[in-house]
Nucleic acid binder design. Sequence first.
DNA 1: CATGAATGAGGCTTCATTCAT
DNA 2: TATGAATGAAGCCTCATTCAT
Lengths: 217, 217, 217, 217
Amino acid sequence: MKSTTSNPAGKATRDAKRTRSKILAAAREEFSRHGLSGARVGAIAKNAGVNKQLLYYYFGDKEKLYASVLEQAYEELRAAEQALNLDNLPPKKAIEKFIKFSFDFLVEHKYFVALLNDENLHEARHIKKSTRLPLLHDRLRTTIGGALERGLTSGVFKRSVDPADLYISIASLCFFYHSNAHTMSAIFQRDLASDAEISKRRTHIVDMVMGFLALES
Amino acid sequence: MKSTTSNPAGKATRDAKRTRSKILAAAREEFSRHGLSGARVGAIAKNAGVNKQLLYYYFGDKEKLYASVLEQAYEELRAAEQALNLDNLPPKKAIEKFIKFSFDFLVEHKYFVALLNDENLHEARHIKKSTRLPLLHDRLRTTIGGALERGLTSGVFKRSVDPADLYISIASLCFFYHSNAHTMSAIFQRDLASDAEISKRRTHIVDMVMGFLALES
Amino acid sequence: MKSTTSNPAGKATRDAKRTRSKILAAAREEFSRHGLSGARVGAIAKNAGVNKQLLYYYFGDKEKLYASVLEQAYEELRAAEQALNLDNLPPKKAIEKFIKFSFDFLVEHKYFVALLNDENLHEARHIKKSTRLPLLHDRLRTTIGGALERGLTSGVFKRSVDPADLYISIASLCFFYHSNAHTMSAIFQRDLASDAEISKRRTHIVDMVMGFLALES
Amino acid sequence: MKSTTSNPAGKATRDAKRTRSKILAAAREEFSRHGLSGARVGAIAKNAGVNKQLLYYYFGDKEKLYASVLEQAYEELRAAEQALNLDNLPPKKAIEKFIKFSFDFLVEHKYFVALLNDENLHEARHIKKSTRLPLLHDRLRTTIGGALERGLTSGVFKRSVDPADLYISIASLCFFYHSNAHTMSAIFQRDLASDAEISKRRTHIVDMVMGFLALES
DNA sequence: CATGAATGAGGCTTCATTCAT
DNA sequence: TATGAATGAAGCCTCATTCAT
């Protein structure tokens, strides 16, 4: 009759795992909205529905909480990338799927963009401490590298490109649009966050990258 | 007997200007290093070598100082762009020169990247107030649009591309590399800030954009 | 079937006692190092190797634990004093032995000095609650008083001194040296905690007190 | 008609020196009552009648304020000692005057005892940083040493005593009585802080020290 | 034009303590 | 007997800003 993990009433949890993740979620929101310096520990606690001190109980301090948020965000991205199963697709399809995924992921995970920008402001000093992230990334590089090679062999790609270089270019084209949408919108006097613009952009990016790969150098 | 624009000693007026620009310089440094929230008014005053109260005298408050820094930064960029004189170049040369300039400008003005990212975190609310910036930008759009049209007419370009779209793609490829260098370096375990990597990247970007324009869709 | 004093496993009861004394030991260390305000309940629990809540279970709260530590410390001192068996010694030997003991006890029980100083900062409000301590002390006063009287009768002492006064003087000479060793060392630029200095001091104190008692007023 | 230093109304001082010393006075009171850990920055500010932040403006942080209080306290003592002009007195008078002064100073400056005890709890780490204190002390040692030598030469003293040793003994006898008055009162069940007891003690100490010096070893 | 003195609000963090199991 | 989860109060300190000269 009694259960420690389910919580019908949803109050005064006393369930460490749930509490931890409520805090993480609130922290992600706050940090992505205001950055590390601008974020308020009090706001995080309030939005997580827990006592302020609990953040310290679980995460040590504001900065460690920030690092946890970052790590979790990256892991979500990598997990989603793995789930794409690119290794079993023909090369063109694989790259195209990856580009579209990269773009869409940021549409659906807006917090990610802000978190990363802020972490770069801090010279990546938080994620530099993580040992897990480089490993996660390596698998991705192998996947993209594989697709590029297969495409080159089969003749659908005309260029030999360093997979890391390509990854960076794709990331650039996808990330910047979301990251700088506000300033660009202001300057172009045009709402880049509208669905129409986003969809147009998505096509443009696919065209540019696929065009680049298909063209003999 | 008193004059604001010239005086017997010929000093006060000049000092005012110099003081103002010392403050701006210190502010740009501080804001680009720490963002709006992370920046410290005290640090700016100290590094500018002036009294804290003077910042308030000249700029009103922290946020207005921040806005001034941003506006000044954008103006520097636009001025440098105008100085390129792209209108008098053949289309391919014009676009190539613009790409290289866009990339190099960020290498030489690192603060610009950080400032823009932070302003995006704040949803561009400071530059949205500026009326001058959109005008400055319009001239650039015209210039790029002109080169694209001329190239299409002469046949060196195979695609009809919206100049704003192209501008965004170029900006993406250039900006992201500098903006996210720290996190990328951490994840790739490779120093993207090294001269070799930077120069390699520069070529890659030119290749990609020019390749895209030269390929029939 | 259940017994509190002995049980099949023969463990729970013994553990309770042991746990209590582990806590007391850790508390004594912490309180003597940092005083009542500076001591941390968390640190005591950690060093005792027990859960924080257990301190509350056994001692009620921080202040009651502090009082327990103090009482235990005093009892140790009084017990050691009783063990000296001064009543069976000739008067000079008795006083000398007591002086040396008083000095050496503090060398070997450094925590005692710090605890007492801190308790004085709090105007002795914790030990004032103890009813046992005055009783313990009375026996000591009788012992010293006895030695003084016997010495006066037999002529080895030339002065009639209030035993409490003498006790205070001895305590002063012994206690202060240990209590203020750090500040004195800093000011004299000389390490008063060295073995040589300590032994020199011990002799000096014996000389001073015995000299005082032996001199006609 | 206007004066920056005098302040009839006595409000909103804007007189750095006065403000600083009001803070120091309040801090001395608070630290001597509660020790470094027990003292409350807010209480100091309140009692000094100034804004909390001003403490930080003038002293940096709580611990530096504490160090300033300590240094000031020591300087007051040394200044008073110098003012005794012992060098011009005959040896017995000099030593006696010094003993009485040492005792009385603590009666009149009760804060001094508490401050020193607390500083010893912290292993004198604050005054160890002071370079001025050892110098101040050296003059005192010379003065006492001079009196002892003159007394030995003239025959009023029978012992050759290290001036530092004597100083420590005097300090012990005077300091301990005030420092441990509360615990002693509790244990002896007798109010050692009463005027009668204090005056009796004063005599006892003079007797003991002078007796010691006058007796051949 | 320039400065040192002063402030109020609020930020991060720590602490002793209690709850629920 | 013992524990991990949770809390409210309060502590130190920093910040942007204003006052008075």
